[in-house]
Design a protein around this nucleic acid. Structure first.
Lengths: 137, 137
DNA sequence: CTAATTGCTCCAGTGGCTAGAGGTTCAAGA
DNA sequence: TCTTGAACCTCTAGCCACTGGAGCAATTAG
């Protein structure tokens, strides 16, 4: 049996966050000690590790809830789980693409400033005048 | 003179967001019509475009406020503006790096699922068992 | 003049936590 | 066994950057 603090140390998920996941329905309400403190077992530990991993991968709480529901029905076809992973991959790729545009523009802005004062600072000019941008955004 | 709706169309910033920026002190309180409606001029339009651009580049409201304050003092040295841009560039690069790790892992997860049912779905197994991961995260 | 559109303020909600107040329980050492 | 201090409990509010709705007032096109 693990206390909430044990679970926190084992999974690197902060204590209030564990309680939050319970509230959000990602974790079932666990057993309690006589003094009303939460007591978790192995399955809860594993589920929390699952949630942590999925969150690290950028999945939304709602997607995780769907995956947990799915994993409770091992006989169902797994097309949904597949779809969730593929959608997540697509959105990660989109985010990378747009961040790379930002990187390029910021690089230009941040490295081209040769001015000494704000009046002729390239950073501020570039932010004021969109026409100084190369790309479209 | 532009109404708030005009400004919204011209800058692609939603009307409530413009009011929010005013509340946050990024935009000065504008003139009002006799009927108490906001009336903006060119300088407000330009400042909102500046804000929009900076937000698109991922700058936080607070950084934008600093830049606006700076741009009101064209005689000061521009080291601060430079620093804000460079910090932003560094954080964009960090985000790209971690997203690329996610991309690699999600790709593995999402393309390796050959199972038919949830019971043997690679997506769910990979999320449950961290040991299936290549990298460290 | 009328009707549709746009504007106003104020308040509440989003997501995913995080932190604090004020109190209770637990576990280890004396 | 007692004590002390850490860890736990619930409840509430706050974070960021908006977004949306209610209920009403002003503007504008026909």
């Amino acid at each position: 049996m693990y206390s909430i603090g044990d679970l926190s140390r084992l999974t690197k998920v902060k204590v209030p966050t564990i309680r939050y996941y319970e509230q959000m329905g990602l974790l079932d309400a666990p057993e309690r000690s006589e003094g009303n403190q939460r007591r978790f077992g192995k399955p809860e530990l594993e589920r929390l590790a699952f949630i942590r991993h999925a969150r690290d991968l950028g999945l939304k709480i709602d997607s995780i809830r769907q995956l947990i529901d799915l994993s409770g029905h091992p006989d169902r076809p797994c097309g949904d789980a597949d779809r969730i992973a593929k959608e997540q991959l697509a959105s990660v790729r989109e985010r990378i693409a747009s961040l790379r545009k930002l990187e390029a523009e910021l690089e230009r802005i941040a490295t081209c400033c040769t001015g000494e004062t704000v009046g002729d600072c390239y950073v501020i000019r570039a932010l004021s005048d969109h026409a100084l941008c190369d790309g479209d955004h």
